[in-house]
Design a protein around this nucleic acid. Sequence first.
DNA 1: TTGACAAATGATTGCGCAATCATTTAGGTG
DNA 2: CACCTAAATGATTGCGCAATCATTTGTCAA
Lengths: 336, 336
Amino acid sequence: MKKPTLIDVGKESGVSAITVSRALRDPDRVSVALRKRVFAAIEKLGYVPDAAAATLASNRSSVIAVLVPSFSNYVFSDVLAGASSVIEGTKYSIQIGNTGYSALTEEAMIPKFLTLKPAGIVIAGVDQTEKSRKMLKAADCPVVQIMDASDDPIDVIVGFSNFQAAAQAVAHMVEQGFRRIAFVGTRMDPRTQQRMAGYRSVMEEHGLFDAALLVTTPQKSSVEIGRHLLGSLLDTVPDCDGVFCNNDDVAVGIALECHRRNIRIPQNMGICGFNDLGTTSQMQPAITSVNTPRAEIGARAAQYILDRNAGQPQPENRNIDLGFALQVRASTQRTA
Amino acid sequence: MKKPTLIDVGKESGVSAITVSRALRDPDRVSVALRKRVFAAIEKLGYVPDAAAATLASNRSSVIAVLVPSFSNYVFSDVLAGASSVIEGTKYSIQIGNTGYSALTEEAMIPKFLTLKPAGIVIAGVDQTEKSRKMLKAADCPVVQIMDASDDPIDVIVGFSNFQAAAQAVAHMVEQGFRRIAFVGTRMDPRTQQRMAGYRSVMEEHGLFDAALLVTTPQKSSVEIGRHLLGSLLDTVPDCDGVFCNNDDVAVGIALECHRRNIRIPQNMGICGFNDLGTTSQMQPAITSVNTPRAEIGARAAQYILDRNAGQPQPENRNIDLGFALQVRASTQRTA
DNA sequence: TTGACAAATGATTGCGCAATCATTTAGGTG
DNA sequence: CACCTAAATGATTGCGCAATCATTTGTCAA
């Protein structure tokens, strides 16, 4: 009636409990005949390992902790989907935490997750507090920072350079003849700030930078906020002829508001989004966006954790840059 | 140097380990003075409970298992966000599983999650396999089905009636004078099928049903697929004058394709989406959609699990219907 | 055939906590 | 002031597994 344990399986197959444990964790270390018998007994009894007991005994769990700034930011949904695809069918599982874009909330969550003795930790970005960094460095599990690039990751980092992605997009717009290009940023999290820095760097390089072109809000991104921000922008900078958005939602909102105001895209207004979530490519005209490998980032992060747990060493290159791909579309193309 | 245990905290505060345990789990059962001393010692030593040991000893963990069909479906991102907001600051944590819209995958995942001795299980919909249902009924933890309504939930169900939501939306379109209203469905998961049934029921009631008006695809929803499906639809049913979509992305795609083809909304084509994710309200004209309480569903599901774990009994009404709200907008308004 | 060595398997122990039952202390009553 | 009860605290035990160390069995060369 009760849930069978390793001892029950052992009795059923005529061996000791520890041998069953070995057959499960390291099949090559038991003989073929025995392995068969053990697995038959497991099947017969419906044995399922007890994760808590295994964790307590080995001081190591199969939980991968994933700390993201927000669940409703679709970027991180894609990351989770990617990680999930990798762990499917393995013994690993994903436990999630929502830091709410706060480094202090994150710092408070880390000890809680560390007590799980996780198989690994995935955490967004590089802007952890000093204390968080110290805790994560001391953790005896792999730590993967994601969605960014860095020469000095805690353990490894999987992502791309937000600065470079923004810079490339803005350089493209400049090349297409846009001059009064605004930066529209929502939420202003660290990655958005890096995009802003990339934007600024290129604008300054071409002598085009003007602080009035920076439009930011702490609010979360949405199509609606994009529409509003275009309004504020045009009030302040009526000669604005292009917008680089930190986000696709905002870009779509700006495009819709341009349509409403009969501002022609790209003739009177160039628009570039970020992340390339799908809608931008379907707009009329199609909106240029920076495609980011979100699912692959999640997958690579999870795979790294699995590999490390399988005994592989830390790789030489700890900055795993998966790049980005500027998808140039009609919204920023003035030349053929 | 080593991680402190209850025994260490006990020594520090001059009591036994079990008393410390009690002070933590049920503060009212120890004297005030002692409680202070214990918490001071916990603070001083930096004690953090060991979840695995607690789970093993009590046969009950603080993990809430959430099984969703997809992470990239934003509906479930919102559910997770709602659940996450409720458990923030508590000892509970969320472990996620991706069933990939497959009842069999789901069935395979359930035993894995049950061995965690979860504090509760959240699972999408009512279409579990018979075996899954049996396992979940036998589980000695609260089980919350979500995103649907039912008279016979496993334990409780938190959601709304997809059938009724669709029926109300379609009835509204009929009332506004639309006659050849198509149903456009993607992925065709159980909830989409219920929406289709609601659509069909109203159409038949008005003598408007025509199987040619059903346009479905197993593909996942996207703006792009919405655009394509409008094309196929108009090829088969050129006199189609309205579309009820199982999804906002599809509705937006259809609206964009209408713009491209110079089909006027709502004069020549009425459009209604589902879920009201935000973009529909910003389109020109604004698109009608059925607003669903996704975050609240996640929150209520989590709250129920917390309440049950705090000793509250199963409520009398096990079908917690949070309803929906048809947001009527310009895309379906032909009359003032 | 024997010995040496590797491969295969087993026995013991403790991980850190909570359940259970036992004991002590405090507070109130006649 | 003795007694009773309730509140507060403590001692013991085992959850199910893996680490560690010990033992048995099998294999092969000389």
